[in-house]
Write a protein that binds this DNA or RNA. Structure first.
Lengths: 177, 177
DNA sequence: GCAATATGTCACATTATTGTGACATATTGC
DNA sequence: GCAATATGTCACAATAATGTGACATATTGC
């Protein structure tokens, strides 16, 4: 599955042959574990979603301070790397949209927690009042993806990446610490 | 070509049949103008690149103030919409990478101008000194794409979008006006 | 209206991908 | 070591996408 996620990253309609090769098995073996492409994607989705949710929930619970919760959720998502990118594209890309949606409950839980933080900060006038929550949500995801891409492509040193992401996200929403 | 760009947006390996349908012609007609998929992509790339370069160069020249130049370049890119997204993915996505690279000179010109602004602002200590130029470059592209996506998906009102993008980009790089 | 050009329709060969069956060969657990 | 399980190899059918030729039908420019 991680081979598949890696492959889907580069090209969403990559052949199963390539995925099998990346995984170090034959296509025949791949077919033994996953009936078809749809099924493989579904499995990847469920696995990666679970992993992302777990990481972000742990990040949420890692601290009592709201801003540290938020920062740690950002860091957790970045650390998920390809898994996060896969899930993100899943929920916004039409070509993935013919798959069923399970695990929504858990995912909603993460999103609900995240939204609660942002709403609180907004009420406390600690973030720019001109921006909408929807915008901030998109921005959050976008900065995560940018960070993952920047590290993966070698544009930015891995050590710097999380720091940069947090500085930029804070600034982008005008967060006063 | 605009039909193709629109289609490639949703799914990079969409069938030529679908593209023809979107364009309101037969696949046979599509084949009369473009030898093959590669050729169609190449043509799209050249057309969209020219359009983006033109818009961003005009934006650069639209004002004498550096910050307004930068802001207008951001706005111009956002207005390019699908064209910009296509070009952006072109230069970062491996699945596009088997195409030739023409028009690089013009593109470099835009990038050179953009970099000059950022370097100046950095020298004048008007942007966050912790961030690298590479990071800022990635961020710039990322905020543009987020904006285009947010408008297209209806998450953010078209009127607000450019304002949000500028507020967020300014904040993300710590720009002091 | 007529010639030139553009597009549509249909048929066809080619190719890549997919999914599966049958059987051989590794690999594992005990 | 031996049985059970996992994987590999090969063959094959089914499908979808692609590119092209031949000819019919619109559409355009003058």
């Amino acid at each position: 599955m991680s081979a598949a996620v890696k492959c889907f990253q580069s090209n969403e309609s990559i052949s199963l042959e390539k995925i099998a090769e990346e995984a170090g098995v034959t296509r025949r073996t791949l077919h033994r574990y996953f009936e078809n492409r749809q099924n493989l994607m579904e499995s990847c989705k469920n696995e990666m979603l679970e992993s992302c949710n777990k990481a972000m929930n742990e990040a949420y619970e890692s601290d009592d301070d709201q801003i540290k919760k938020l920062r740690n959720m950002l860091f957790a998502a970045i650390e998920q790397g390809a898994k996060y990118s896969f899930i993100k594209r899943f929920y916004e890309n039409s070509s993935f949209s013919d798959l069923e949606s399970k695990n929504e409950f858990e995912s909603d839980n993460v999103k609900t927690r995240w939204l609660k933080i942002i709403k609180n900060l907004q009420n406390e006038k600690r973030i720019n009042h001109e921006l909408t929550i929807n915008w901030i949500f998109n921005l959050f995801g976008s900065i995560i993806e940018t960070t993952i891409y920047a590290v993966e492509s070698g544009d930015v040193a891995k050590n710097d990446s999380k720091k940069f992401a947090w500085i930029s996200f804070k600034g982008a929403i005008g967060l006063k610490e």
